[in-house]
Design a protein around this nucleic acid. Structure first.
Lengths: 140, 140
DNA sequence: CTTGATCCTCTAGTCGCTAGAGCATGTAGC
DNA sequence: GCTACATGCTCTAGCGACTAGAGGATCAAG
């Protein structure tokens, strides 16, 4: 009853067909049964698992993190400390990237704001790029 | 007098040696003169150009954008509208990414905050990943 | 029976580097 | 001059997470 071809799984999860095949190839999604004509046939567990993967990817977790998180779901009695620490580490990374992008943003705003739309020779954007000393923050 | 080997250029700009060779290969930094023993020998213009590249990369500009910005510096009398628009487009992209990461951050904070450090079966982190419906925002 | 959508495998490309192999040359101390 | 060791060279391959395309098989509808 719940035998889906790859296109339906793709529809149901929002994961593109080639990406599903890719996840199978790297061992993130188990290889499903095949029909007589060699087509992949997915069931409910695949759907659940792929939704999990999709959601975790959307949240920016790496494939390796997801692999580990998925392995945990097979050990429901184990402690969830490890899941917690993966999530915390990822959160820290996200916060680091936000801070860095905010710093980039303010430099870009300054550069653009100072540009008076004349010739290249007078362009503050170009000049700022040539000279990091004009920057107000570190942004590397 | 200002004949630098690649290592000195690397030191002076903070760009790693293999990266400098890579920039030459993709045509971002012009091929320098060579010594009799076939070693690269850089001068002041290379230093300036590589500093520009480095700074623009640190600010997150793509190699293609940098290529275009560098080409402009050779046309000092031309209008800087294009430089301005490249910078604006990039700023918009940075702002988009900041917004997305902030949304990720709040979801991650929620997941982690709700976790009571018990077993996997009760883990809110795992559960949240399995069910996007628990999310407070869109974050894809 | 034909058309067009969907499916298959396989290879190669994206971006911006980074790592390593295997070799030649330069520099400093003895 | 000799010996280390650092630095340089070219070339190929790998990273992460896909994406694109070739070339072919199969399915569902009219």
């Amino acid at each position: 009853m719940d035998a889906m071809p790859i296109g339906a799984l793709s529809e149901a999860t929002g994961v593109k067909v080639p990406t599903i095949r890719f996840y199978e190839q790297i061992g993130l999604l188990p290889a499903p049964l095949r029909t007589q004509s060699n087509r992949r046939s997915y069931g409910e567990p695949h759907l659940q698992r792929l939704r999990f993967i999709r959601h975790a990817r959307d949240l920016g977790f790496s494939v390796d993190d997801i692999r580990e998180l998925l392995a945990m779901t097979a050990q429901p009695q184990a402690s969830c400390d490890r899941a917690d620490s993966i999530a915390r580490r990822h959160l820290a990374e996200v916060e680091r990237r936000i801070a860095q992008l905010q710093s980039l943003r303010s430099e870009l705003q300054r550069m653009i704001g100072e540009c008076s739309h004349g010739r290249i020779a007078d362009c503050r954007v170009i000049e700022s790029l040539a000279d990091h000393g004009q920057c107000l923050h570190e942004h590397a």
